[in-house]
Amino acid sequence: MSGLSYTAPSTISEAVSLLANASGLAKVLSGGTDLLVQMKSGRLKPALIVDTKKIPGMIGIREIDGAFVIGAATSGALMGEHAGLVAAWPGVVEATNLIGSTQVQGRASLAGNLCNASPGADSPPAMIAAGAIAVIAGPAGTREVPVEAIVTAPGRTSLAKGEFITEFRLPKKPARSGDAYLRFIPRTEMDIAVVGCAIAVTLDANGVCIAAKVALGAVAPTQLVVAGAAAALIGNKLTDAVLAKLDAECQAVCKPITDKRGTIEYRTKVAGVLARRVAAIAFQRAGA
């Protein structure tokens, strides 16, 4: 730990400057539930920790005309306690509230869960399906990108040196819309996804799907947006044939690895199973 320094800037520009000018490895600290473990195990040896939680806006949820702005360091616990967010985007909240334990949910943040860039992270698929936008501050100013553009490979993101996520924006939920997230773990709690699946749908007045986004986690180096699966839903009600097509489309895009949590074959099959179950919940939430 020698040579490590900690700083908690109070403005975004100060944080950007610290990160951009750091000579050694600089890490952003929000909830710390991944970072501290990686430091303790010796996997990461940062020279500088920039704690962003003292910057106004980094923690908290604002509802603006039905849309939501969520500070990047906001914990899952705060999201679960926000009635408006739970009502609008239950899938996003349930995914976030699956991360670790009560204790971890008290700290773990959306930005951390995303930028740790683990293929098995729970909140990114749900954020992707919901159409969330990440707002990034950096030396060149701010930019906005869809959440699916952040993670590029396990442990890697598209953020440049000096950049960090300041907030996430969730759109106003369209009428007759619903989102949902399920993950498979062999236990009941306290485990990392073998497969995760999130789906957001919008239905017309007759219950026919007019918009859909399907995202999978833990079946590829990054979260996958499954366009074929969305296409299988759009224009349809949730019949057995549509579910079968959804299942097949999801299985078709899986590129998992075999590891201690599951084999390629198992993960691929379960991705299809979860997609069917998640679609049923999302359609039901959309009023089908």
Partner: peptide, 13 residues
């Protein structure tokens, strides 16, 4: 007022 694991919090925080 928030339940946390003390091992996942930096003392300086």
């Amino acid at each position: 007022d928030r339940l946390v694991c003390a091992c996942l919090v930096l003392a300086v925080e």
